[in-house]
Amino acid sequence: MTDDTRVRDEGFDDFLDAVEAGEGFYLECPDGHGSLPPRQVCPHCGAGDLGETPLAETGEIETYTTVHVAAPEFDDDTPYVTAVVDFGGVRLTGQLRDAAPEDVAVGAEVTPDVARTETTGERILVFR
């Protein structure tokens, strides 16, 4: 199933839209805890007053792996690098694009974007 037939997930798809438009954001509670939509309350402290804070333009790779065995939806994408990237208020998990696996390193600076998977054409959060 591709995005064209999948019912949108409110909050999540809005987040991807924003990242794709270069206007990524995260949710922040009055105590400064970051989280990702959709949220009714802060997952860390339960506060209900969540505002949108712009996502930093770049984040730092905190950990990564090259995936050789994937689920069927990512069969044609292998091998690919999955990374967890720290943006300060939140971390994001996505695929690293435009980088050879041997050039990937913890601490490297990357920017978030949205692309399509090779296998199904689904939208996916990526880092470049």
């Binding site: 995936v67 069927p72 999955t82 998990t93 996916i124």
Partner: peptide
């Protein structure tokens, strides 16, 4: 592999291509 992945967050992990072994690999490298 596909079935085990449902133990992870569908929106923010599985749709990003994170498999179950990948998750532990991320922890191992960390």
């Amino acid at each position: 592999t596909e079935a085990l992945a449902i133990a992870a967050d569908d929106l923010y992990e599985v749709r990003a291509g994170m498999t179950f072994p990948a998750a532990y690999a991320l922890m191992a490298r960390a």
